[in-house]
Design a protein around this nucleic acid. Sequence first.
DNA 1: CCATAAATGTCGATT
DNA 2: AATCGACGTTTATGG
Lengths: 225, 225
Amino acid sequence: MRLVIARCSVDYVGRLTAHLPMAPRLILMKADGSVSIHADDRAFKPLNWMNPPCTVRESVNDDGTAVWTVTHGKSGEKLVLSIEEVTHDSSHELGVDPGLQKDGVEAHLQELLAEHITTLGEGYSLIRREFPTAIGPVDILCRDGGGATVAVELKRRGDIDGVEQLTRYLELLNRDPALKPVSGVFAAQEIKPQARVLATDRGISCVTLDYDALRGIEPDTPRLF
Amino acid sequence: MRLVIARCSVDYVGRLTAHLPMAPRLILMKADGSVSIHADDRAFKPLNWMNPPCTVRESVNDDGTAVWTVTHGKSGEKLVLSIEEVTHDSSHELGVDPGLQKDGVEAHLQELLAEHITTLGEGYSLIRREFPTAIGPVDILCRDGGGATVAVELKRRGDIDGVEQLTRYLELLNRDPALKPVSGVFAAQEIKPQARVLATDRGISCVTLDYDALRGIEPDTPRLF
DNA sequence: CCATAAATGTCGATT
DNA sequence: AATCGACGTTTATGG
């Protein structure tokens, strides 16, 4: 990883055209070949960047300023840096990162809810996760206490488009005489007010999930070992 | 801007839970208060980060390792860094960045299509761009060769939610006796297969736009100067 | 490699 | 504060 602090101007030509006037910035060049140009704000987001795989060509202008041309072969995108005043330039060997362990993303929620399907109501039973349809997999398909089919759409944050998604599934599933009638459950850690209104309006029930609680309790069908 | 290269382990608790085992990384602390932890890959995306406004508290463990606790007051998110071996630590004054000038393709596309409305078909004529409705402006409203109203939704990338958006407009517009019947056109530089399927199922036609071609040809109504 | 859905999405405008 | 739409979205995953 190479860290350069320098006054630079940048031009990007690719999916759009962008220009950065000359100013002091951080140029971050990673071992994966990526280049990103950071100001002292915008949180972790760079002003400009180039994703790998890309190649960097260094040249020198007539007036002595260095020019780095970063090219992304596949897409034809190009990033051109003119570098005036280098305040800092250091390289560091970091090695391969052991990587990030995440817990609490949608996949985990789905696992947990499938394991604790009675969270949705007394007598519920799982049919299957990722139930395939022509327009994509339904997160969870199950039966309610009365044996009727229930389609569950799962989100970490329940927004209006999640309700739309579930609505599409329900429409399709209810065309199948073997499954019909299929009701819908919109389950999320947090459900936005408007999403709740839309869901209710469409006869879809909303369930707010408590991840920590789900993780804490015993599974519906305890393991044998 | 402070750049620290150090062996560190990181724990994030907030919207999800995440853990990074001890390894050498870049810790980037910006003047805006943000903190981000980078490995030598993943392009410009950090392994972990905290957005401003947040506060950093430095303390020292019993075994002498430094612990930085980054707290986001509003959301309750927390980032805890244990720092073992600092290889590099430097600070740099960058000042306020003059900022990025973008010349987007996006806005231009609407202009071009409005100018070349016959791209959609023989005899098409523009009613207006950004036609206002109660749920937001329709990108382009026009008439087809037979004089019937056509609503156009325009995207750079045509995804399924663009079709949903257009569907909502169409439903609304078709309640207006003066406009009815209104048909829909989904126009984008690239249309995803699933979006195309959904659009077709709803009687919405799809048009793939060629930005360069649109820019190259003469306008339908040539300018007088 | 293409298509699709998730993301600690982020970011900005608007209500 | 919530919503909506755009993003050079990026990233992971499954076919």
